[in-house]
Write a protein that binds this DNA or RNA. Structure first.
Lengths: 148, 148
DNA sequence: TACATTTTGTAGCATGTGCTACATTTTGTC
DNA sequence: GACAAAATGTAGCACATGCTACAAAATGTA
């Protein structure tokens, strides 16, 4: 009876919509890198048959060490399979995620291009934006593309 | 003469546009939280004269401990001033950043709403998207709003 | 085969962001 | 003033992501 429970312990219940939005954004950040990796692995596999650590490092703009550690996490989470000194392959889950990401990326880039944004900026912005686009918003983008 | 410099040491020079985009996105992530905080502080100051740690915690959906540590960083980086057990205030730099963020947030939400997205989803998505919208894309959003 | 290069892996550090648990200060109330 | 509650601060942990430096395995070539 000493602690009169200053805050409700379970399920913080954010008092504002902003809190909820920010929590959502933080959750998205956690999956963002996984999405970038599986997408890159899928692209590399399509382009040259397999994805190697060095390829990923070059492509993602990080060192091979970072790639290595992130791959361990992706493996733990069931997105890829990998053995030491061997190429990296996507699991079924990973492949599905990669396809969804590729499609979403294409949609976001096309949408931005349709607003008159130049190609390079569209690519740069899409990379940051795409991970935060809800299905509803993605559908709106597609609708806009069909109409325009 | 032992090390033949396998990789160029300085300025990694990403070999792909994607690498460059991702590096940009990572840079944005670093400023993202600062933006959310200064915006929240500005809102609270406007609404009730001052921003306290508990208010920020509630509003941002994190514990007061996280707020406290992040505020130390914001203070270090010159966005806010704070003394122990006192309210938090924005510096000139912080105030300018907050205003830009508020305006950008409004634009992004209005833009999404104009595509037919419902208010709550627009808010949720905007929170994630807004930090990755370049000036060019923001201008395109505004243009679209004026036209539509 | 032997050696150099490339690739991959590991060790250890830094930063940022989140948390719980506990300590201290401030504030409100009797 | 004294006490309880609220607010704030601190200690220490976890995890994700980045890095450099070094070690080991794989690969290419003389």
């Amino acid at each position: 009876m000493k602690k009169p429970a200053r805050q409700s312990k379970k399920s913080v219940r954010p008092s504002s919509l902003q809190a909820e939005s920010l929590q959502q954004t933080r959750r998205e950040h956690a999956t963002e890198i996984a999405e970038d990796y599986v997408e890159a692995i899928a692209d590399l596999a399509a382009a040259q048959g397999e994805a190697r650590v060095v390829d990923l490092a070059r492509r993602l703009g990080v060192t091979h060490v970072t790639v290595n550690r992130t791959l361990a996490r992706l493996q733990r989470d069931g997105y890829v399979t990998a053995q030491p000194y061997r190429a990296i392959f996507l699991t079924g889950t990973g492949r599905k995620l990669a396809e969804a990401c590729q499609q979403r990326h294409t949609t976001v880039v096309s949408f931005l291009r349709s607003l008159g944004i130049n190609e390079k900026t569209a690519e740069l912005d899409a990379e940051g934006i795409e991970h935060h686009v809800s299905p509803e918003t993605l559908a709106a983008f597609e609708r806009h593309l069909r109409k325009g």
